[in-house]
Amino acid sequence: MTLENADSGSRTIAAIRTFHYAVNVATLALSAVVIGTDVVLRYVFNAPLSWGIEATSLLLLVMVFGSLPYVWERGGHIRMELIYSHLNGVPRVFADVATALSGGLFSAALCFEMLRTFPGMRARHEGAENLGVPFWPFAVFVAVIAGLMTLQFVVFAVHSLVRGRG
């Protein structure tokens, strides 16, 4: 929605949507399969999995952050539109810039923190004990997504400023 007029923009949206779909197919389906398998193995075959919870937790992380860019593109965040929908001109630009700043503050801080901490996570061997998977690649994934989100908010702010002037 933020890039609706630009050709490259619609390609970006399509890419984000495809990514969103791929992430959710993988994570939702895998989570259901892992949990379902764990239940059957435990209840029917008396052979519970030791890494089911760890695997599902990491899948959830990928699902949540893999979805956030598309949630923004599609205007999926819950907002109060009572006043916003009637705003025009400068007040509208003001509201949009406030939105971009709020979101940008969060995503930039998150990106920064993940980039700052992932080498330490790696050095300290932080990871899922039973699954035997290190955490740091997931921190890098979150950093990349948060970086992309920051970019989205910057683009949105610039667009609304340009539109407000025109």
């Binding site: 907002r79 929908s85 509201a95 503050l105 969060f106």
Partner: peptide, 11 residues
């Protein structure tokens, strides 16, 4: 003002 609620709270 219409800032998405999650983003406003985070900010």
């Amino acid at each position: 003002l219409g800032v998405p609620i999650g983003l406003a709270m985070a900010a």
